[in-house]
């Protein structure tokens, strides 16, 4: 009964929304020309990065805060101190490959961070690559799972958010929140993105490493 009602409801919802999408006229206001028009003052030349870190910077500021809170919540419910599961030894080929790949992945992350200013890339993708490197090292037993974060790890996890918040607060004295002076915008965005990359990489890696049960 419930199955039928929910399925019917979902199908009806999809049909109505789909029909509405098909009937929609041309958009009344488009933001793309606005972004293109003010891109020169944003400090970067790639429009998505300009939107993420300049025009709608507070989205990104709140996003890194949400990530940090999610990670704190996760560490609160993750189980600690249980016996490590008996796992088979890792193939030496895999370990060697991981040792070779990890530094290259860090290099790719730095490139993505730098490229974000003028082409697809940026802090999010760079952070994802850093996290992937950490997960790879963990899966090959080169990096143990994290139990309780130490001072350095805590600083790294919160650093990106705190740096972003500090810059936002400093700019508040100048006038509006996160309204960069055009002359320094590029430098400020690069500083914020660097902090974000490190913190995002650590947080995303932490989502995996705090949950993992293999401690070696």
């Amino acid at each position: 009964m419930k199955r039928l009602a929910v399925s019917l409801g979902a199908a009806l919802f999809a049909a109505l929304l789909g029909a509405a999408l098909l009937e929609l006229g041309p958009p009344a206001a488009t933001l793309a020309p606005l972004v293109a028009g003010t891109l020169a003052q944003s400090g970067v030349t790639h429009p998505v990065t300009a939107v993420l870190l300049n025009f709608r910077g507070y989205d990104t500021l709140l996003e890194i805060a949400v990530l940090l809170i999610a990670l704190i919540g996760l560490t609160a419910v993750a189980r600690r101190g249980e016996a490590p599961a008996a796992t088979a030894a890792v193939e030496p080929v895999l370990t060697t490959l991981a040792r070779l790949a990890a530094p290259l992945m860090v290099l790719v992350a730095v490139y993505l961070l730098w490229a974000g200013a003028f082409r697809p890339g940026g802090a999010f993708q760079a952070g994802a690559v850093l996290a992937a490197a950490a997960v790879l090292l963990h899966l090959t037993r080169l990096l143990p799972a994290w139990a309780t974060p130490g001072t350095w790890l805590r600083a790294g996890l919160a650093g990106g958010f705190l740096l972003f918040l500090a810059i936002a607060a400093a700019l508040l004295a100048e006038g509006a929140l996160l309204k960069y002076p055009p002359a320094q915008a590029g430098l400020l965005i690069l500083a914020i993105e660097s902090g974000l990359t490190v913190s995002l990489g650590l947080i995303l890696a932490g989502l995996f490493l705090f949950l993992s049960e293999e401690r070696r």
């Binding site: 697809p120 999010f124 994802a128 996290a131 992937a132 997960v135 995996f208 949950l211 993992s212």
Partner: peptide, 24 residues
């Protein structure tokens, strides 16, 4: 035409979420 999202989706949506799900 959203290469930024494609990069993030490949790394995070498929990669990291997949690793989390397999671990769970």
């Amino acid at each position: 035409a959203a290469p930024d999202i494609a990069l993030a989706e490949a790394g995070i949506g498929a990669g990291l979420t997949g690793a989390l799900l397999l671990d769970a």
